[in-house]
Design a protein around this nucleic acid. Structure first.
Lengths: 244, 244
DNA sequence: CTCACAAAAGTCATCCGATGTTTCAGTTTT
DNA sequence: AAAACTGAAACATCGGATGACTTTTGTGAG
């Protein structure tokens, strides 16, 4: 019996999910039931669940139950940025990564997209435009979704998983990218990308995406200069909450 | 008090590590001490630790203690591939990802490398050649290290974190990439990459890397055909262990 | 004095029971 | 019907007890 019981129990829970054919949003049995079913103590279940929560496979709501997570499998700190101190450079570097990756992804998406995916992309695209016209900000998630769909369209599983992670990391670790980018430019860029994908024109999609990300990078640079200029009381803006 | 105490405790432990200036391999106080220091119950500490373990930030050894993990922050399933079924396609897609990324990384590495990094790369390179001459196989880790160093050399934090993750995922989810690649070709390719980086010749590094990965992809393709040809008793080779 | 082995101390693993909080769904009241 | 109340269900947190494992210490033989 080499591996700790907790880890084996975590595996057993994953197996349980697949064997019971539970999918995102579904509810697991309560802790006591799981404990008796898997023949371990309740604390063991709790630790195993905690482990799966930190891998974003599960999600617990106090008083309600334990559920299969919606964003199955994308953990909060997937690439181990927890100890990176210079979050500004990290953000820049993440953008550099996107600049290499996403044009390629867009090109593949133009090749491999399905009609269904296209419809969804166009819907999200419309929602983004609406959100931009009404409230400013708060379309982070929509933007991440936009790029994630395109990654899915590429047909490359790895890209499909990685792109959301990168984008999520940016919003997580970035206190500079305040999304002040010109709305008009963003809308225009998105439209060109969508057009390229719709028309299955790989190069249009690629270059539009390239320009879009380059634009973001420029905007980040501008924000950076503003911030560092008036950086006097500049604390980390990502606040971890204190003790009780 | 929104966020669960366990998560806040996990953050507190990370803070504790940095504030006490602990680094990889160092030992944390025992559970009881941590519990009193952070003013929470022992079970809470255990769950928080479990969460950090699953993110590979910590490592527990029964009977010995809890330690800061060596591979700080790189989790076992960082990109959420736990539920991907077609591990063969996943592997191919991961290679496609590498094909886009690593030549770029190699180019940056040629620009930004330090002498110290170069020395380490050359050392690992030598070790790989030795390992290849004596025992066959088992140089996975060295190969991952090779590519990781180059990613570090690039100076891009995100790349530095991502490349090892990708390479690790390949060895994790791949039962096809049996590393049968021609040793001579690998050694030759590595040498050219190193030469490009040493001579700070970005394009040599880039194209050598491109060729190297393309070669791996070809090899994967060959293995795939062999495997699928004689696929009769073909079970998943990645075994999760059973219950006690 | 050194080595090997046994004892002991330290630490995590696991289970358990108790109590507090939160959520949710009925049910009652207005 | 809408709002307030109530109670069951479920997770959150705590701390004690026992077991298993690792490391250190102690002891005796050679």
């Amino acid at each position: 019996m080499q591996r700790p019981l907790v880890e084996r129990t975590a595996d057993a829970i994953i197996k349980f999910i697949t064997s019971e054919d539970l999918s995102t949003g579904d509810k697991l049995p309560n802790e006591y039931e799981l404990a008796t079913t898997l023949e371990v103590g309740r604390s063991t279940i709790r630790e195993a669940v905690r482990s799966l929560v930190s891998r974003n496979i599960l999600e617990v709501r106090q008083g309600s139950g334990t559920y299969v997570s919606e964003n199955t499998g994308i953990s909060e700190d997937p690439l181990g940025f927890a100890f990176v101190e210079d979050t500004l450079k990290l953000t820049e570097d993440l953008f550099a990564l996107r600049y290499v990756l996403e044009p390629e992804v867009a090109m593949l998406a133009a090749y491999n997209r399905t009609e269904e995916q296209l419809a969804y992309l166009e819907q999200i695209s419309r929602e983004i435009e609406e959100a931009m016209e009404t409230s400013d900000g708060l379309h982070f998630e929509l933007d991440i979704e936009f790029h994630s769909i395109i990654a899915d369209m590429s047909g490359n599983i790895a890209m499909g998983h990685l792109i959301p992670v990168i984008n999520q990391s940016i919003t997580l670790y970035n206190s500079y990218y305040t999304n002040n980018q010109s709305k008009a430019e963003t809308i225009q860029a998105h439209r060109e990308i969508v057009e390229g994908i719709r028309g299955q024109n790989p190069f249009q999609a690629k270059y539009a995406m390239q320009a879009h990300i380059a634009d973001n990078q420029r905007q980040l640079e501008v924000n950076r200069k503003n911030k560092t200029a008036k950086a006097t009381s500049g604390e980390k803006s990502i606040e971890k909450n204190d003790k009780n």
